[in-house]
Design a protein around this nucleic acid. Sequence first.
DNA 1: TACATACGATCTGTATACAGGACTCGTTCT
DNA 2: AGAACGAGTCCTGTATACAGATCGTATGTA
Lengths: 242, 242
Amino acid sequence: MTESLRIYVALRNDIISCELKPGASLSESELCARYKASRTPIREACRRLQEEALLQIVPFRGYFVAPLTFDEFRNLNEMQLVLDPAAAAMAAERATEEQIANIERWANYVYHAGQKKSYETFLEWNRNLHVEIAAASGNELMAEMTSHLQTRLIRYFYLVISMSSYGKELVDEHHAIVRAIKARRPDQARDRATEHVIRTIERTSRVTIPSVGYSRDAASSPAGSTSTPTPSRASGGHRTTH
Amino acid sequence: MTESLRIYVALRNDIISCELKPGASLSESELCARYKASRTPIREACRRLQEEALLQIVPFRGYFVAPLTFDEFRNLNEMQLVLDPAAAAMAAERATEEQIANIERWANYVYHAGQKKSYETFLEWNRNLHVEIAAASGNELMAEMTSHLQTRLIRYFYLVISMSSYGKELVDEHHAIVRAIKARRPDQARDRATEHVIRTIERTSRVTIPSVGYSRDAASSPAGSTSTPTPSRASGGHRTTH
DNA sequence: TACATACGATCTGTATACAGGACTCGTTCT
DNA sequence: AGAACGAGTCCTGTATACAGATCGTATGTA
């Protein structure tokens, strides 16, 4: 599984960091060349990324980096509004001292406005903070779901690159959540988390979004490549078998 | 993808219905014989089931039907307590008339006490009800997560087969949720859903659990097969990359 | 007899060959 | 000229061959 895992990690990273543009079309042979591997592990990695909704696979047609849509962004935020407060409350009750120490560590990053690299590192720390809190809830599923959510969310933030002016208050909100957890006050942690998510939504809804591979409703996805057939969102989607 | 999909569905069904016992060891060649297929699509289906936590894959060692543990059951219930009320509230606000009609349909199953087949059908309807409500929340992710949760939960119920005496009140609780959604009262829907989950937890915690492949803490999983090496829960688990 | 080691069988991970479907582009008919 | 049709090419899905790893067993030694 080592080869397949290597590709999975590499490809995943390229997608999350938007190195591979949302909506871009990929082929197995391209990926084989890019990651110097055979088709089998490539396919395995891609299937896994499809499960995480980072990649869309259309049978007999090809692979597409999952497009970013307002719809998805809204849904992700909404779920964060459901999960994060619950996780914070649970963490306030159950987090070990070690976990609290980790949480504090991730919350203490301050980034330097205007520096792209610093911004990207901040995004990773932000992600880790949220995941660590979820892990401290003592519920593995909560950790998994939050991790999944943050992975999908981070792509949107990578695209923005203009949160500079909000850095301070964002960090303050993080600290407020951490304080509540450390003080073992579940209700307060829940409230601070709710507040934080809501404000983040407000902040991101104000910024202008560069139209790089950003499609308004799963429609249109040029991304440079010649003739990019846009798969319908439905085809590769989730399976809610009734 | 047709062959791979066929196997995925079949294997998934066999695992969910506990036809393949929790903890059981499988090998690719076994699966090839069982589902009359080649290794490639078999592997693909298995990877997908691993993502759903229904199968554990230990590199170079083999496949194992995910064991049932008290830990996982508790975690699943806890997440249901987070998701279901939120989904019900959202559904009360956004469900279309058609969705409400579907929800009502799934809620109206009454099963005949003592009949195993009827019980199993009831479980499916129960699952569909919860998933349909989540879908009516208007949030795809909510639907996906709930579907995932219900899939993992249903295995535990399949193992119990003794909810006979609780059938009536369970159905009543379902109706209460549906009524609140239909009446477009989010808060009430949330409360009824919360109540329902809590009572379900109480009910299931009272029943005696047959020790068929049921391991108390991911330890020991005989399940008949000779020499079943028990993989550690950590190995195939989630990836919370920090 | 108990333990350590080395060999062999078996199985998974990877690479590659084969088969069938989808898109492209040129031709032909209206 | 424009549209419909069809052959060719490319690509994905599937089957199978090859390589490396793990586990069980047998053998030798203390």
